[in-house]
Amino acid sequence: MLTYTIKRLFQLIPILFVISVVAYAIIELPPGDFADFYISSLRATGVTVLEDEALRIKEQYGFNAPVVERYWRWLENIIFHGNFGYSFEYQKPVNEIIAEKLPLSIGLTFGALIISWALAIPIGIYSAIHQYSKFDYFFTFIGFLGLATPPFLMALIFAWLFLKFFDYSVLGLYSPEYVTAPWSFDKFIDLCKHLILPVILIGLQGTGTIIRVMRGNLLDELKKPYVITAKAKGLKFRDLLLKYPVRMAINPIISTIGWLLPALIAGEILISIVLGIQTLGPVLLRSVLSQDMWLAASIVMILSLLTIIGSLISDLLLVWLDPRIRFERLSK
């Protein structure tokens, strides 16, 4: 298992390389020299930049070098110095911005993942056992609706409903009276209150699909001969259900992390933008709109990294949980 894990970690290297190339493409693609942009933004803030000074800046950032060398300089900075560059929009290092916003992004995404599983798996099981019941139809419909509603719309609609019917604003992280207040228990409670809706909204993105996958898997598994064997042994229905078919049906759900995580991250970004939650989402939008490409590329790279690590974890989890896959993978 350990050697397998190490092997998988080594396999990540080419993937990380491709990600870095994609991210660097984001930096290079906008028309115009990045240094020009930097210099003009310096000038816009009132700093006088002389022509030879401009040249010096170009030299310093290596903008006169060929693209491969520029790429390598950028990558070198990240790998050896952990330096993602500088944000012209925010006027501070990218590292600082990311360190500030990333934890909440991860927290929201992870919370949403837990919520979507915690909701979807029991509902999926119940729907499968009570196939074609009113409950089943109801959740099939809800699932479809969740699938069809883009996350930002969901956020808009809910924010509007809360405002209209409860006169309660879900925007932002804190209620106005706590924004500048020092940390206290009440402020923490206020923060949690404001995070519940976003977490649920982000989670709903995957919930509908997971319900359908779980329901379908379980329906398939319930027909398998080993379920009949277990029944023939005299097990109670509940014990039988949880020990055999549910266990089997949950395994493929674990492997859905691979696509669920990108979807959740997308949802997190859009919903944070709409609800004004200060995560990486609004920062990303602001950075791409102002062509602050070092920041944008770093965010894209970090989010990609997160999903890749997520699917690696799900893969390892599956190997650990499923003896068939374990047997096949570890014996290779």
Binding site: P225, Y226, M248
Partner: peptide
């Protein structure tokens, strides 16, 4: 049972 493979749970 007839199918010794599928009549055992693989997990």
């Amino acid at each position: 049972f007839q199918e010794p493979m599928s009549s055992f749970s693989p997990l």
